[in-house]
Nucleic acid binder design. Structure first.
Lengths: 208, 208
DNA sequence: GTCTATACTGAGATAGAC
DNA sequence: GTCTATCTCAGTATAGAC
């Protein structure tokens, strides 16, 4: 057909978003897309590289928007540094907006994160963004030690990843699911509170 | 040999802790344990049920300690309710203590969480513990709406899962890894700050 | 350059002999 | 309880048709 590569990408995006990466076999993708098995390896090289292209396609615009917002924030030239909340908004809101435009976005990214398949891909495509935001947040929180700050960033990423993965069904209460946007607003509030929390571990008490 | 089942469990625990669940094949386990492939299916039924038994063996004592601590906390009969920080300590510290006693604990549980394989197992074996802690935290935070509270619990679980998975290497700075105990102390502080944070979303503004 | 047909290796699972 | 043989399905590699 005309665009084999495009059909593979679209079908893979839909199926992986629905069933997850591991549960979606290449043979399932090709049968729905109406292409040959080897075409995947011709165009992408491997299943993992196909995933990589999907992620880039989805996350690329979001990361661009994140950098643009941080540019504007830092161009303000505020004397101390942009406040934690402002930096968090610039980081998280582009994700929420992408989710509003494209309902498949959260499904796919959440699947990836929940299956723990993004370690390598994250480092490859997100390090520019995370590096700049890391430094911006660091400047907003000069009182924290390096070690404490790094861990709080780690906690934030964990909360974010889990939030993209699914509903909070731990309790079995269920309830109606709300929009992704307000979910992100809640996350920003929670994370900001975490960053501003008093430190429990005295600098000298650290082990190792 | 004498205890085929035990040898399978020990070997699987070691290999999965080292390489992860997906990357550890049953054939790898049997070759190291010196047993037959079919023995795994005879004793456990499937690879997933083998994992289930490993989790129970590791997490069972931790969950028992969690319930005991919550009992003591609630037996205090404090008029309002145990403070958020106290409840969080009762929940998280048994995990830290288990990690100190058994270095393999965090490795295995972290692997499980990072590979997203614990959804079903979590619900099966953790729901008693999480249910009771859910209610204890809810009593300590009466000002939050149901929806807001549920999401903050969700964020906490995400931060916890990510914390057990590994080091905060997002920044590429590395640095010496510290003990698990102080890592948990940092997590408690962060999460407590998150729970106490002011709510960003006005109750009427929620979507859907 | 693109795509098809087919074969290879390794995974988890299972039936049946001992 | 244990072991052999075998099944199905996965991702991958390659030879060759257009």
């Amino acid at each position: 057909m005309i665009d084999t590569k495009g059909k593979i990408l679209d079908t893979a995006e839909r199926l992986i978003g629905e069933y997850g990466y591991s549960a979606t076999s290449l043979r399932h993708i090709i049968s729905e897309a109406g292409v040959n098995l080897a075409a995947i390896h011709y165009h992408f090289g491997s299943k993992e590289e196909l995933l990589d292209e999907l992620i880039v396609r989805k996350a690329g615009p979001v990361n661009a928007e994140r950098l643009a917002r941080l540019d504007r924030l830092e161009a303000g030239g505020e004397s101390p540094a942009p406040a934690v909340e402002k930096v968090l908004e610039a980081f998280f809101l582009p994700m929420a907006e992408a989710a509003d435009r494209d309902p498949g976005f959260v499904r796919l990214m959440g699947r990836m994160l929940s299956e723990g398949l993004m370690q390598g891909i994250l480092e490859k495509h997100f390090q520019t963004v995370t590096g700049r935001y890391f430094r911006a947040l660091r400047r907003a929180l000069p009182v924290l030690s390096d070690e404490e700050f790094r861990w709080r960033l780690h906690f934030m990423i964990g909360a974010m990843a889990h939030t993209m993965c699914g509903q909070p069904d731990v309790t079995g209460l269920g309830g109606p699911s709300e929009g992704f946007h307000s979910r992100i607003e809640r996350l920003i509030g929670f994370v900001a509170g975490g960053f501003h929390a008093p430190v429990r571990v005295a600098p000298g008490t650290e082990e190792k």
